[in-house]
Design a protein around this nucleic acid. Sequence first.
DNA 1: TTACACATGTAACACGTTACATGATTTT
DNA 2: AAAATCATGTAACGTGTTACATGTGTAA
Lengths: 175, 175
Amino acid sequence: MSLRHALIGLLAEQPASGWDLTRRFEELLGSVWPAGHPQIYSELRRLEGDGLIEVESQGPRGRKAYRATEAGVAEVRRWLTEVEVDHTLRLEPLLRSVFFWLMNPDELAAHLEREAAYYRSLADRLRQLAAAKDRGEFGDSPQVRSLRIAAEAGIRLNDTLAEWSTWVGESSPTA
Amino acid sequence: MSLRHALIGLLAEQPASGWDLTRRFEELLGSVWPAGHPQIYSELRRLEGDGLIEVESQGPRGRKAYRATEAGVAEVRRWLTEVEVDHTLRLEPLLRSVFFWLMNPDELAAHLEREAAYYRSLADRLRQLAAAKDRGEFGDSPQVRSLRIAAEAGIRLNDTLAEWSTWVGESSPTA
DNA sequence: TTACACATGTAACACGTTACATGATTTT
DNA sequence: AAAATCATGTAACGTGTTACATGTGTAA
């Protein structure tokens, strides 16, 4: 049920069309929560039916921009404060690690190096983004501060995963 | 498609029934990958049909224990080395953080404290498990070493999340 | 005028969860 | 004898992905 609330939350910040939301999701939340456009469009229709969002304006080529209603914002608040948090940390690389014993040492070493490089580069990209936010390049709204917080989690988690990959490589030597 | 491979991987370690696998998944991988028994039973039937696992023995009350076939183990190896890793880190608390600006400061502070406590206690439990493994209480097979590696990721990630939650609380004070 | 990006949608399928159903063995 | 646990399964639903289909506005 998280997609519902995330969509309302994004619309509470500013009105947007299904298309806009698809792209924002992709760039902003794509690595944390999946959402293709078919799911977004159908969820938007449901949300409109439930009165949690409403059409704000119609643009060219059938573009419909939605905004969150008061009921919608209240529902997101309720979700944030009352609904129990799901702590499942779903991460395929971690699942794979349970089966490392099936890989031969060379393959494992190569794999771990690729993984570490991936996490490092992602952490670096997020660091740049965070630095830009800290320089005030996106203003200083509460929304930007929340994004800064999420970015910080991304940085720390990816740093951690990079270090972990390196640690695995060192504690299970090739030969 | 990860469930398929995880099931074969578990069966490569030792034969088990659908029931056994359900419980092992729950306790071992439940916080990293979801799998209820209906999904496991139906996946086992498919895997048997594909020749990747086979019935090893039949026990009381219709219990069927499966083991991985050679083709099955080969398929897991192929997955580990050739199939691209999905790096999506699906984590609801991180999604929620993007919308922290919608929470009032008191609620947020309380929320962050609960979160930090959760991560700390989970990290501590994993630390105990890891220590037991390091003391050799589970022997020293390659399988146990892989589990130790996975546990290390859990420890580090949960520590990171606990620190992050604390950091958020400190950088966005209540009053 | 052609190509690209915008914009919305449906259909079919794969994956995951919840509820329901059934019955056997073991423990109390 | 009753209760708990073992063990397997189906049905219905909800969520997420892929492929397909359609057409508009804008820039090269």
